[in-house]
Design a binder for these strands. Sequence first.
DNA 1: AATTATGTAACTTAATAAGTTTCATGATTG
DNA 2: CAATCATGAAACTTATTAAGTTACATAATT
Lengths: 148, 148
Amino acid sequence: MPTDSRLPRVLHVLLHLDQIDGPVTSQQIGQMLATNPALVRRVMAGLRDAGFVASTKGHGGGWYLLKPLTEISLADVYTALGAPQLFAVGPSSDNLTCLLEKAANEATAHALEAARSVFQAELAKMTVADLVAPHAETIKAFQQSRPT
Amino acid sequence: MPTDSRLPRVLHVLLHLDQIDGPVTSQQIGQMLATNPALVRRVMAGLRDAGFVASTKGHGGGWYLLKPLTEISLADVYTALGAPQLFAVGPSSDNLTCLLEKAANEATAHALEAARSVFQAELAKMTVADLVAPHAETIKAFQQSRPT
DNA sequence: AATTATGTAACTTAATAAGTTTCATGATTG
DNA sequence: CAATCATGAAACTTATTAAGTTACATAATT
């Protein structure tokens, strides 16, 4: 399957929503993500259900933030997406008839679980607002060069 | 794609090879893994190239260990398999035109890298021989109940 | 009433491990 | 030598799931 890029993509969207006044249409977001509006709606649905964003129909409709990005951790976003399958690697079957297979599966699962735990911890460490901190200088300069 | 189960499966195979005297055919291994000989050969090829096992052709041929399992770490096995893609999740494109996308990608990549590091460290911690330690009692009892 | 936008279902495409088929090559046995 | 058994490897199909697409119903604005 193609790599699941929903997490970085919705983070990208949230950062844009925070910079734009008023609702942004799925069409516009689709252009940011180089994809089509239907896919945007499908991916954004999780964030809507989690209460991070809302959307309105009709003229002037679109997506907008319901909570400040300082109150949304990356882990919150990952969870809102449905906590998608993190690993491409996994145990074989759950056939427990062979003790050696069981031992091999358990060791693999243990290493994966340790990795998942660290992944979640890293995501929990920072808010979406923190994402731009390393680039704050550049973004500030860019915005000043193109006043609205 | 289906979940990549090559790591637990070859670990399973190595444990069996350690318990059987003389070469084991791909056909026999295929029965342990509930698959066919051709797939076994494909997966075992990495271990052969790494020098962990060898195979002989013809009557009485098959696979056997070249190194004791106490000298093969789980990380060695993972590497021998070609260090397969660990994550189903990944950054979006490497399109660097948007700073916000870059920030989102970097944060995602950072969390994944931390997870990968822990995964590798966990694998490096133990040898294939260590796998059966938690089950040593059970396996010993089982073997005694079925002497060769 | 026309336009614009979301919501959602249904379908196609892409990527890759697994699974399968086939045949060439080489080793053992009689 | 000839038959058999095994690996090696190429070529092909299948399974899984995110991405991408199409189509249409629903709702809000003008």
